[in-house]
Design a protein around this nucleic acid. Structure first.
Lengths: 203, 203
DNA sequence: CGGGGGTGGGTGAGTATTCACTCACCCCCG
DNA sequence: CGGGGGTGAGTGAATACTCACCCACCCCCG
């Protein structure tokens, strides 16, 4: 019974619960009582493991951020592989970026409701040298390398191209949550279209 | 003294106050008491003019949305004017879009903290047949007309190009508020760069 | 023409509820 | 038996919202 779900340590369950509530009912309704109930423990237990509610949220944002791994992997792979075309790689990146942003959007946007929490999170994040812009930097760097390897036009603008591709995916994720799935194209047709147009801009 | 500031009707002052607080201290701290104090009236007066706090917020979001006028004007102007190049028009659109999104971002993103409020707002907005996607539709339509007039390449993808340009401006606005001004390019260099790359993709 | 009374807008002082957070206490494992 | 992890029952503060009341204004009727 080592793997029974109740064996999962309480702090983890609290982080899980907080994340789940932030995604579903929203930051405003993610109260300490609701989080404790969702985690299956008492409110007082929360304060045995976290100094206060804000610390819990900050740790959720730092540790339970949607998994950027696949996206970063898609960003780093590629340039050494001359078999795959750049456009296909861009489509793959657009696919991963669309999924990642769709995942991250609700929690990230929630922070705008509480500027104090946003500031705390920003400080923690920039002390770690990370942040949402690393994705953009990674794609820009990747494109710069592609250009230097002669696979892009010599006057291509890697940073701007990266901003275009990721920005389109980002805004699509926003529409998805803000207006509903019916106003956005499905990823399977969106990602290749985006890749095609960006590729046309830099080849 | 008809134009004295206290002559501004109370409901307007409440809407002003609510908007200001949403922008500055955030939706979470925009309490009825704070709004009333900011508007210079009592809390009870708020309930003479609005059924509840949510109705006040919804009306702020519907009526005090950042002015999309200049952006929509920049989007509609142009195709009849053969003197101006498409790229310059795109740069102008990118400039206006960057400003508009930077203005709208805090209030729009705040909604993610309260999904119930988001749903109410979505319903109100789509009953009016509007929404954030109209900007994208307008630019896509504009580009389609340019293409049909032969000023773009015949296989240009207007909808995707619009998503790229506006998405880049949208994400820039997000970075601006989320991470600070130091991680984004100034508009004066960002807008032309975006326009140049998009133009390269569709010409 | 004067005054009685409805009315829209405003207020101060509440109310019930909910919030984040605390405390005294307990259980059980090493 | 000591202490980390857990709890039930609070605490004061803050929240959204209400209530009784007020006042200036206007309309209309005697």
């Amino acid at each position: 019974m080592l793997t029974s779900k109740s064996s999962r340590p309480t702090p983890e369950r609290l982080l899980d619960a907080a994340e789940k509530l932030m995604r579903t009912v929203g930051l405003a309704s993610a109260t300490t009582k609701a989080i404790a109930r969702e985690a299956g423990c008492s409110e007082a237990a929360l304060y045995k493991h976290f100094a206060n509610k804000e610390e819990l949220f900050v740790r959720v944002l730092m540790e339970r951020t949607p998994n950027a791994g696949p996206l970063m992997a898609a960003l780093q792979a590629g340039p050494g592989d001359p078999g795959a075309g750049v456009e296909e790689a861009l489509a793959d990146i657009a696919r991963h970026a669309s999924l990642f942003y769709a995942d991250a959007m609700p929690m990230a946007a929630s922070l705008f409701a509480d500027p104090a929490l946003l500031t705390r999170h920003r400080e923690g994040v920039q002390q770690l040298g990370t942040g949402p812009h690393v994705v953009l930097d990674a794609l820009a760097g990747r494109l710069r390398r592609e250009r230097d390897a002669g696979r892009l036009g010599p006057d291509a603008d890697p940073r701007t191209a990266a901003a275009l591709l990721l920005g389109a995916c980002f805004q699509r994720a926003f529409f998805l949550h803000f207006s509903g799935a019916h106003v956005v194209q499905p990823v399977e047709e969106f990602a290749p279209a985006v890749a095609r147009s960006v590729w046309a801009a830099i080849r």
